[in-house]
Structure formats: structure tokens, C-alpha cells
Amino acid sequence: MNKMRYLRIGVALAVLAAVLACTFAHVPAGTLCALCPVGFAEIAVASGSVPWALLPGVLALLAVVALLGRVFCSWVCPTSLTRNLFGGRTPRGLTGRTGTCAGCATGAGSAAGDPNAARTRSSLAAQGIVLAVLLAVSLVVHFPVFCLFCPIGLAFGTLFAASRLLITWQPGWELIVFPAMLLAEVFLLRRWCAAICPLGFFFGLAAKLHVRLPFAPKPRADAATCLYAEGCRTCATVCPEDICDATATPRDLEDCTGCLDCKEHCPTKAVKLTGK
């Protein structure tokens, strides 16, 4: 069944729970915002000096993406958590799919086109435009403007508003506004991850390195057992990014978020995580 999806929900919830536990135990571990490359850049331009103390955490996060791929996106990001929790049976991924693979034929077993040729790719250029605009705005208004919209920040904001409610008994509008903004971004702006998320710009660059690292794990179909030639498109159908593991180019694998749904659902267990 959806074993991997429940596992991902568990991991993302565990991260939120860990941050809450740190808050009540007074351990200053911080939210994920302390690792954010976008926050790093925003603060640098908004305040006019580089916050060097943030850099080790930022580089560590990017190193994880370079080694393991965009695993942050599907395993930790509250955007994916929201989709996995409230997105119905087929939550969408980076490219905003609805659950039917674009290149897959409807009839089972019939030879269909290559799903990788038909899939929409995440766009570094679109994310780069957003990043450039938000840095320019932060420079002018002197506060990190994207932090007001970031789904990750909104999720943690909701969490801390709830904790503030418990500590000082002061309910705030953010308890309503933040979850509403989060849901709107995730479900109305279905291209959020592919076309807007400026964090995705940095992750996209790190993913370019990831697909070129010979030892970094990537999902590939073992040609000996893969049923692609017989018309099987299962991996592309279950993949939130429409990636077919049999024909994926490095460019396609850049969009892989390591959710492992393909590995779980492959009928012949042909999908392996290999370096090349």
C-alpha cells in the first residue's frame, strides 16, 4: 500500500515534533529556518552584512541534497507533509501533476510514449526569477520578505503560535492565517515547488551535482527485470514528478525527490538505488 507515503508523513511530523520538544526543553536547536539558504541570502542583502554564522548549516543542508538528492523536499518539507496529509490519494509533487502520468497510455500493457519526454520539469529559471525579485525587494525594504510567505516558515509559525497560546494564553490571528496561507499555497498554487520555491533554486543547483556524483544514490530500473518494453509505466504513474526510472536522463533525475514510491510500487522490484 502507501507504505513510503506514511513513512514520509512520519518523518516530517517527527521533525516538527522534535522542534516542539526542543522548545519545551529549552534546547536552542532552532527551526529549519536556521539552515535556509534563502534566509541566509535575504538577511545578507536586507542587513547589508553577511551572517557568516548561518553558513555552516546552510552548506550542510546543500551537502545533503548533493549527496542524497532533493530528499528534503519529500521527506522533511511541510509542503509535502501538507500534500501527503490532505492531498487525497495522489498528492502532487514538484511539477504539480494530478496523478496520471502524461506519457502513459490508458490501456494497460499497450505500448505508450516515453513519460520522461512528456513530463514537465522543475524550472531553475522560474525559481531564479522569484529569488532575484525577493532579494531585490529585501534589499529595498530591509526585511526578509519571502519569510512571510515561505510554507516552511508558515508551518513553524503555526507551531510556535500554538506554543505561545499555551504559554501566555494569547491567541493570535496567525493561528488562522498561517494554516490558511499554507493550504492555499500548496493546493491553489500547484506549481509552487517547481516554479516559485526559491529554496528549490538552491536545491536544483545541488541536484545538478547530485546526478553527476557516481556514488550518490539515484533510482534506476534494472534493465534485466524492467517491464518498460512491455508497456509498464508504473514508476512514472506513481512518481510525483512523472519520472520513468527506465528512461530517465540525468536532467529528469535532478527533479527526483527521493520519495521512493517507484521502488515500492515497481511490480518486478526492478528499481534500485544506484550510483549510475
Binding site: V19, C22, T23, H26, V27, P28, A29, G30, T31, C33, A34, C36, G39, F40, E42, I43, A46, S47, G48, P51, L54, H142, F143, P144, C147, G153, F156, G157, F160, I167, T168
Partner: peptide, 17 residues
């Protein structure tokens, strides 16, 4: 406002909430 990245570490660190 320019420098704070809302990471809430100070909130977590305060022993007296």
C-alpha cells in the same frame, strides 16, 4: 528586523519563556 531569520532559537533558549 533585517537580521532576524525567525528561526526561534532565542525563544527556545529562554529558560523562563
Amino acid at each position: 528586523l533585517a537580521r532576524c531569520d525567525r528561526c526561534q532559537r532565542c525563544v527556545q533558549a529562554c529558560p523562563y519563556d
